[in-house]
Write a protein that binds this DNA or RNA. Structure first.
Lengths: 107, 107
DNA sequence: CCAACTCATATCTCTCTGGTTATGAATAAA
DNA sequence: TTTATTCATAACCAGAGAGATATGAGTTGG
């Protein structure tokens, strides 16, 4: 059962794809051509990566004539933030349990 | 050049491996056997996943007799947190630039 | 209308990796 | 000292996916 975390992690796992996303975060809206110019891979490869990013909700595309403009959707990162703080939460919960245990032992 | 983000994202991209890490966050230290019991894959598969997690610094292992106890190393997640806030930072920087521009235009 | 441009899709290849079974090393128990 | 248990490693297999090239659809400019 591939949940939302799954898609996010898998999408961001590829260095080329993550670099494209980072670039969109830095520079804002960019065309496929502009992205391809610095991606180090072919234009079809970039298009495929953009497709995956779009599928994951990480980017938005805007058609304008014969070129497509892509921009990052930062909100799509929130499941990742949630997951991280959830892990930290588990950690702290266990720490609290330990404290409770010690407190009870102390009585 | 696979940086630290790379290893983290790639390591956490696999569902089975991420589930193992989540379990270690929830339940604390666990043996390979205990992890295997609920992993849904064979023991060698679990061992391999633990090896990858250890390589990424996400887990620690402690030998005790014939069993190995693994525990999560939450601190290894900080590059991930850093990356996320960096992306958000880029976003805000661009927003600030826009505000500056508008402010200058307003004069 | 025709030529050039921008991007997406189709197809193929090849590598990477997550899974398995088999096995061995180390430790504990009988 | 055997026997059983726990885990890691080796070898192998199959599927996924990231890359390339080829091509076509849609758009702009001459």
């Amino acid at each position: 059962m591939p949940d939302s975390h799954d898609m996010l992690f898998r999408t961001l796992a590829d260095p080329t794809r993550r670099a494209i996303f980072e670039r969109l975060c830095r520079d804002g809206e960019l065309t496929v051509g502009a992205l391809t110019a610095q991606a180090g891979v072919s234009q079809p490869a970039v298009s495929k990566h953009l497709g995956v990013l779009k599928q994951a909700g990480l980017v938005r595309d805007r058609q304008a004539g014969r070129q497509t403009h892509y921009s990052a959707q930062l909100g799509a990162l929130s499941p990742l933030i949630d997951w991280t703080s959830q892990m930290a939460g588990f950690w702290e919960a266990r720490f609290d349990d330990l404290e409770d245990l010690l407190a009870r032992m102390d009585q």
